[in-house]
Amino acid sequence: MISLLSFGPDGWGRLILSATLTTLLLSFSALLVGAVVGSGVAAAKLSSHRAVRWLGESYSVIFRGIPELLVIYLFYFGGSGLITQIGQLFGADGFIEAPPFLIGALAIGLISGSYQAEVYRAARLALAKGEIEAAVAIGMPRWRIRQRILLPQVARYALPGLSNVWQMSLKDSALVSVTGIVELMRASQIAAGSTRDYFSFYLVGGACYLLLTLLSNRAFLRAESRLGRAWQSRTAAQH
């Protein structure tokens, strides 16, 4: 078993490791895409225009209600089909595949965005109105308020929710394996199929994901306590 995971020419260790890196990169890219999209959707949901709010709600309902696998199929096969058609216009021949990493990150990112939208929206609503009013009262310009008051607080409130969303993206990235990209799930599949030792390699793959999840949790908890330190020290001083 250990030999199977070794880093030598016979061992699968190297593949698993590089695949894990791919998984991390994929998930992180998805998180970034989701952050951009999520902020937009959150803003839409908080807007005063009913039509805009409706758009935001629809996005949420759609991307939280459709199986992730279907979304990936849409982007991968649909994207490939589109690119192939465009290629044919330019005289290219045969099937052109959409870049799996980009497609995967996009698909998972859009899904992640719908969940991140909820997180940002809740975080924004949690912000006490008084803090903004105080800033307005002293004549702080809107952009400064956003930078100095809004963003830091929203970040602090959003962190726990983001921890969950990150975990989700990590796990959803496994689904991108259907596009053929060699991330952790696909690597486990390849190794398992090649050695016929399915149980061991899927177990190892699962354990790697678990490790990533646990380490992420720890990192987020540390970030949360760091950000919350300003508040903690205040209450500590009061006792």
Binding site: A174, M185, S188, Y202, G206, Y209, L214
Partner: peptide
């Protein structure tokens, strides 16, 4: 903490 997909493959394969 682990993806459903890998749990599924673990059981099936």
């Amino acid at each position: 903490g682990s993806p459903l997909m890998i749990q599924l493959f673990l059981i099936y394969y």
